[in-house]
Design a protein around this nucleic acid. Structure first.
Lengths: 332, 332
DNA sequence: CTGTTAGCGCGTTCAC
DNA sequence: GTGAACGCGCTAACAG
């Protein structure tokens, strides 16, 4: 270094104004596009000055006056949320950047209230909710002035919930070779299983529809011995088991436990996972798994994102179609 | 709702001052603990008023005057960073909250400059770097006034880098049953493999040390057919292969590819992963894997976190011991 | 039309 | 214990 460059040398709107030979107000007007139209000459001067100084408006100053930060929060259920989490985040980050927004990721903690409070502290422009917020929490966010994305039609039939669809799909897949004792395998760590209830409900509905007894819910740790114990506890003498799992990881654990118990797969134990992860297709036996098609959701997020700038009241708003498909493997 | 509650009804320091019958300056002094000592009575009044109003200082206002936000950024390499990512984030979030800091997660994008810029926009108090920042980038952050955590001893021997240690450990493990042709298997998606170079270097060093030829680097997609093709391309006629993998996911892919090629494991193909994930221990054959002990790192982060409030120049600063162990499975 | 003045929003801090 | 000013950007009101 030559002469102890001051750490905080960020130019302010005042610096730009000075360099351009105008007032701060003019700078603000021009840089925000809107406002009265200034002669081309003035615009150019200001833009050039801003460019030379590499002027970046202070988020703090802006937040102070607008009462809102330029932050967009992506609320993520947990780390195990498919492997497409990264893609989704990258995608949203790109689009948000185009709107001048900064994206931050928050993992949903085990304490919903705390999580909500943490989000509110950011005074975000928008919150991308992957489906873990309750109606009341969405309400709170909305009232705080944050757009909650994707926007969900108000009168949503719980039967159309993606997790319900997943649960039904698992059940249907497990039952396609005749009736079996249905089970729902959740993760032991509840923190990681926010979608469990919906999926379990879906399986129950499917069971009812088939005239089968209500499925049982078991918790499967991702550890062989304890998983085996858990599975053994529900193993009937000679009724084949059919286990719908929270995700592929759990499915792998169930398969491992079944193997440890000497069960044939899928004859004695059929298993269906969710997410159709790459790993699930690489292990032996290859998993049968429900794949969630995120494209529609992504599109919806993108369009909602686009509409937060234009405070258009409420454009169309088609429901997000719950789009899933079954990847047939060797476990069901 | 009764009467269109105003969205922004947050109390300001003025409200607290009014209710407590003092000036805003007094409120500020008392609420920031530090400052001259006020009579107990005044303190109580202010605290009570703040409590009743549930007063939360505006981050924007504070940021404006301090030139710094109350944000702590955790820079995460990618989604596949072990499953302990969630634990680490939760852990840091807890501790940070105790310091009144808000934690945000950023995934390191493929474009380092962009990532750095995005972080700088937050003007964060601190950045937790999981080891993906270069010395220059750390420098930039430091100059911007952000504490970079964990603090790394300046003259760090690259040989002590955790990834180098991991690479050497993989090689050693693979070679414990005699010399083999060493390979390093990276993920196809480079975005997900920021630690690859260090690990590969570690393997090279170990190979040199053993007088073996330099290991080759291969890219293994997480998809059976293409993984098989990639592995077949490097398969010598009758030299057994020994593959050190970026992580357990890659290891599972290599094992699957080997099986597809009719190789016996570990006789013809030995494999070592990294992370010792739960899944790796549930599949068959059970993975041999290098486990990274995060406790020391966590502790270091915790202590560094504690020291950002006290601007103590530079307390001790013991090096973080790179602590790894080998989980013996059936693949090496 | 073009551009400026003035004051807000919120917490902090110096000087009295 | 307080008054006043600062930091930074925005915008309504206003003057040239």
């Amino acid at each position: 270094m030559t002469a102890e460059t001051k750490p905080t040398k960020r130019p302010t709107s005042f610096d730009v104004a000075k360099l351009a030979g105008v007032s701060r107000a003019t700078v603000s007007h021009i840089l925000n596009g809107q406002g009265s139209r200034f002669p081309e000459e003035t615009r150019a001067k200001v833009l050039k000055a801003a460019g030379e100084l590499n002027y970046q408006p202070s988020p703090a100053g802006r937040a102070l006056v607008t009462g809102r930060s330029d932050i967009l929060v992506i609320l993520v259920p947990n780390t195990t949320f498919g492997s497409n989490l990264q893609d989704l985040v990258d995608n949203v980050t790109q689009r948000a950047a185009a709107h001048g927004l900064s994206v931050v990721v928050r993992f949903a903690g085990s304490n919903p209230g705390e999580t909500l409070a943490a989000i509110l502290r950011f005074r975000p422009v928008a919150v991308v909710d992957m489906g873990i917020l309750g109606a009341d929490e969405r309400e709170v966010l909305h009232n705080s002035g944050a757009a909650v994305i994707p926007r969900i039609p108000a009168s949503e039939d719980p039967t159309h919930d993606i997790n319900h669809v997943i649960g039904r799909t698992m059940a249907k897949t497990l039952l396609r070779n005749g009736p079996r004792q249905l089970l729902y395998a959740a993760l032991l760590d509840e923190r990681l299983d926010p979608f469990g209830p919906g999926r379990f409900e879906g399986m129950k509905a499917a069971a009812r529809h088939e005239g089968l007894p209500e499925p049982e819910r078991i918790e499967i740790p991702l550890e062989l011995e304890r998983a085996t114990t858990a599975l053994a506890a529900v193993q009937a003498k000679d009724a084949p088991l059919a286990v719908g799992c929270y995700n592929d990881d759990v499915a792998i654990a169930v398969v491992a436990a079944g193997r440890a118990l000497g069960l044939r797969i899928p004859e004695d134990l059929s298993v269906v996972g969710v997410d159709a992860t790459a790993i699930g297709q690489l292990v032996s036996p290859r998993l049968t798994s429900v794949r969630i098609h995120n494209a529609p959701l992504m599109e919806r997020i993108a369009s909602d994102l686009a509409s937060i700038s234009h405070p258009a009241p409420a454009p169309p708003l088609p429901a997000v179609r719950a789009d899933v498909s079954v990847i047939s493997g060797e476990t069901a």
